[in-house]
Write a protein that binds this DNA or RNA. Structure first.
Lengths: 207, 207
DNA sequence: ATCTTACGATACGGCTCGTAGCGTAAGTCA
DNA sequence: TGACTTACGCTACGAGCCGTATCGTAAGAT
């Protein structure tokens, strides 16, 4: 896999690189995770099968990179002016990503594989999880600046808290969309946000 | 797959059935999802490969059944006397299940596959999701009986609410355990429960 | 005793895997 | 310009799994 440093010979084709990632995404959307094969991707990308193995160790790593490229395009956090608005915004953005067939089939699969493969776990964390988490941290900063949340006092407690919030938001949205199989629409995002901010009683109070 | 009704000939071996499911779980724990093969399971179970195909259409369905059997043993909701205690209890029970290597590797994988296969989705829903959801519903009934939650008024709203709570609890625990890769211990369960009941501000209020 | 179904064993074509070896193309550096 | 280094496409390989079919046998039901 190493095209590491001190380059001298023929450089790797950048066109091939993006063509492969693109082919991986369309193949994912068409075939799903289990039926996706390296042979198939190579054929779609118009590239020799060996070229894939020169750049990625296997299917897992290839898919992680292919999906990560999507996140950079899609994940943003529009400043809505309120904490509730920011949460609803990130929820809907994330849900929008989960509507794409390629992410639906890929995300859970790579997570499943990563439970047995530490190297893959790191790759997933760096390429996908951290990108999402950054949004949560940014939103909290804004909320503090507005006075919607108290300023940070204990740094460790603050980190634990944002970890929890991240798991709640990302986990719930994924579960709703992929496990329960129900739509994540604006109305659901509103109710979810109310629960995150006010807890279960606040949710019951009003319809 | 159909051993449907009007039986007359030789019955299917019940020993083989449980031996196969047991072999599937140990193979899952050893190899993980992607490297698990029907051939391997058959060999471990001491059964001909064709016997597996007579009972299950493929790897997906076999694994769902193998994991579902675990849930029946493990999933219960001890009555702790308070809503908070019940939530912490079910969170810890579920987390305990997610510590087993066979469930870790299997759960997300079958969910990933089910996003492309409606029949598999139904199987997952019936065998796994509904079993978990029943716990949430039971806990809510108890809380209402104790007066911790207001009695049901609108039935539709009530169903939406329990769906949301279910996604929040199951989704967050799974995300914490499998994506973030952090332990779900008693201390975390306490903080999570406080957030579910009181919302984000309640969480910040105390350490 | 007969009938029906499950079982084990074996074999098949088709596919994917990961690696290796080759000659050629595309750059870098003197 | 020419030597060097690396990527590329192509072909081939052994191994493994897949899903199905076939066959003779075993185990219960009637």
């Amino acid at each position: 896999m190493p095209p590491p440093a001190g380059r001298t010979g023929r450089p790797r084709s950048a066109e091939a690189h993006s063509a492969i990632l693109r082919a991986t995404r369309t193949a994912l959307a068409e075939l799903g995770w289990s039926r996706l094969s390296m042979s198939d991707v190579a054929a779609r990308a118009g590239v020799a099968r060996t070229t894939l193995y020169r750049r990625w160790p296997g299917k897992n790593e290839l898919v992680v990179d292919a999906v990560a490229a999507l996140l950079d395009e899609q994940l943003e956090l529009p400043d809505s002016g309120s904490l509730a608005g920011d949460i609803e915004g990130v929820v809907l953005r994330f849900a929008q990503l989960l509507e794409r067939p390629e992410t639906r089939s890929a995300l859970m699969a790579v997570v499943a594989e990563s439970t047995r493969d530490p190297a893959l776990r790191e790759r997933v964390t760096a390429a996908i999880v951290d990108r999402q988490k950054a949004l949560v941290l940014r939103g909290r900063e804004r909320a503090r600046a507005r006075g919607e949340l108290p300023p940070e006092t204990d740094e460790a407690a603050s980190a634990r808290e944002s970890d929890l919030v991240f798991d709640v938001i990302a986990g719930t949205v994924v579960h709703r969309a992929l496990v329960s199989g129900e739509p994540v629409d604006a109305e659901w995002a509103r109710r979810f946000t109310r629960m995150v901010l006010g807890g279960l009683p606040a949710l019951t109070a009003e319809g």
